[in-house]
Design a protein around this nucleic acid. Structure first.
Lengths: 341, 341
DNA sequence: AATTGGCACTTTGACAAGACGAGTGCCAAT
DNA sequence: ATTGGCACTCGTCTTGTCAAAGTGCCAATT
């Protein structure tokens, strides 16, 4: 049985009504609230087909229908148009983000903004180190054998790390090393930095090599290990707001939001083909998240993706609105980062 | 009617049983599970008195009794002894915290440890800037008119901030300023730093003063404004675990955990008189938190409190265990920070 | 005076039975 | 292909009953 145009209309109407009311929607209610031009009996026939094809389901005989993951998928892929943001929302984005003073501030404002706009939980990944270039490396002696290594990227991200050396380095050694590091890696991509780093100790006299390689190792480590993992989260309270509706989901979801490793996997590598990616229910392989959907997109000036941001909520969410909000915020943040380059 | 010794025993038993079972506890169950040496009828009389005095209450006629906030208060103040941690727990604290490489790592490990140990939500405040001294100030030109200001405290806390100046500073000016700043404020308390800062521009030629005061202002600002507000949170998922038990509380509590300003107020100024502070239910003036209790303590080497840490959970929590865990973790963290001084 | 056993009373929760309503599926008619 | 009609199913709501839990009180005991 083919799915014709009207059946798609029916599916769209079901999704919209269900998202709005949170209640299974029946054939009668449907003809009342939408201008479908046919009777409820016809709708019932269509619904039977849609159910047979797996787009909708009924919690029990003689309740209305509810969209399945597959139904939502079809909805976002083919049935929904992007809902333009209201002027108030556009204004909110601007005024909220324009006050940011530096990268940390941009990220923290962005994540709160997204949470507020969508009334769901929001996540923003810091600009990925591996896709940034080095702007500056600074070494600061903290007295004794301790040195602070500071790394600054072209996106304004600042990573710092204290390293405990086997012996106290003298000030001139630090100066030499700082100069050499900067000359060597500033402006370069992170992948290339890793290979160059290996040569560095060779340029120093043997007695200094231990210190030098200690610092170099920390630098590399902080790039690779800690590099990707920074994310900001906000809006967890929004999940509890309509919380008891997806009950058993809440705890695993909160866990995922705390486990940054998991979270980054969920944010995933936003495909650059389509601007905003939606992953629905079971499509997230992560266990316990079968009733949550994730809307993500990459951000970054031009086509140069620096990181991802997104929103998590129940599968029963307002997809057009959420997609629009995520897209708009990402575009605006990209602009800001570009202007700040 | 006076509250005699046995009535206190009864109250203690009620609190313990209620915390363990999460169910109102009746007179019969009480004599079964505890060796009180009297009959259930006697217990009933005692319970009637306890209820009259406001220490316990019954959800409805003929259910068991449940402790009130006042009952919990009496329990923690006079009826409970600190429960010593198990060897496994002590070992966990050590092995978990000993791997920390720097302050950020210490804080993040601490907060996760606390959450895991108590199975509740944990909060750790970063060492307060106002109670630290300056170890080093670093100025790094980012090219153009942008300068990165990095501030390092004796506790290992590193604050950074990018400042956009009206004109590009030249390198030697930055060097001068850096030297002067360090000479002037290293080793000093933050309160005194603020007043000294005002003099700084005067030592520079007029044409540089704008740049100098821009940097000085940022430094001050980042100390004062952002200074206190850094906190780390973990274990929010634990709240959802037994979440539906305190229902309406979840959302405001999650909100509070995200609003760092509110959170810091809740952590409060841990009184140094008693090592661990407990605030129960309504005692937290914050609205919506009438069913949550907060167990906090200050940490820091010796009597020098650097910040607070604590645990938030339902009023119906294991107070002796939680108090012990918070106390032990705080002591161990204090040691670590001391060793790292 | 304190404690106890006994008993009546109240309330909850579980269970069953029945009324009701919502919604479907199907069929015959258009 | 669409429609109105109708029987059917199933969940929900209400009501009633019953057992269990727990209390409060009282008279008896120590």
């Amino acid at each position: 049985m083919p799915i014709d145009e009207r059946k798609l209309d029916v599916l769209r109407a079901i999704v919209e009504d269900y998202v709005a009311t949170q209640e299974p929607v029946g054939s009668k209610a449907l003809v009342d609230r939408h201008q479908l031009g046919v009777s409820s009996a016809t709708i019932r026939n269509d619904m039977a087909v849609l159910e047979e094809e797996g787009y909708i389901t009924q919690p029990h005989t003689s309740a209305g229908r509810v969209p399945t993951d597959k139904g939502y998928r079809l909805f976002v892929d083919r049935l929904s148009s992007v809902k333009p943001l209201s002027m108030a929302e556009r204004r909110a984005i601007r005024s909220f983000l324009d006050g940011a003073v530096d990268l940390d501030d941009v990220i923290s404002r962005t994540v709160r903004l997204l949470a507020q706009l969508t009334r769901q939980a929001a996540v923003v990944q810091y600009p990925s180190l591996s896709r940034s270039t080095v702007r500056h490396v600074e070494l600061v002696s903290l007295g004794g054998s301790r040195v602070l290594v500071v790394l600054i990227t072209d996106t304004g991200r600042v990573e710092q790390r204290v390293v405990e050396l086997v012996q106290a380095p003298d000030e001139s050694l630090l100066g030499d090393l700082r100069a050499r590091l900067n000359a060597m890696i500033v402006g370069h991509d992170f992948a290339s930095v890793a290979s160059k780093m290996a040569d560095i100790p060779g340029h120093f006299p043997p007695e200094d090599r231990q210190v030098v390689s200690g610092i170099a190792a920390t630098l590399l480590e902080s790039l690779v290990e800690r590099g990707e993992e920074r994310v900001a989260v906000a809006g967890t309270a929004n999940l509890a707001r309509h919380g008891h509706e997806f009950e058993r989901e809440l705890e695993p979801l909160l866990s995922a939001l705390e486990e940054h490793v998991v979270l980054l996997k969920l944010l995933g590598h936003a495909s650059s083909s389509s601007p905003v990616t939606v992953r629905i229910g079971e499509e997230n392989a992560t266990s316990g998240l079968s009733a949550t959907s994730i809307v993500t997109t990459a951000y970054g000036p031009g086509n140069n993706a620096l990181g991802s941001m997104g929103v998590l909520g129940p599968t029963r969410m307002d997809y057009p609105g959420t997609i629009a909000a995520v897209g708009a915020v990402a575009r605006y943040v990209s602009q800001i980062l570009d202007a700040n380059n």
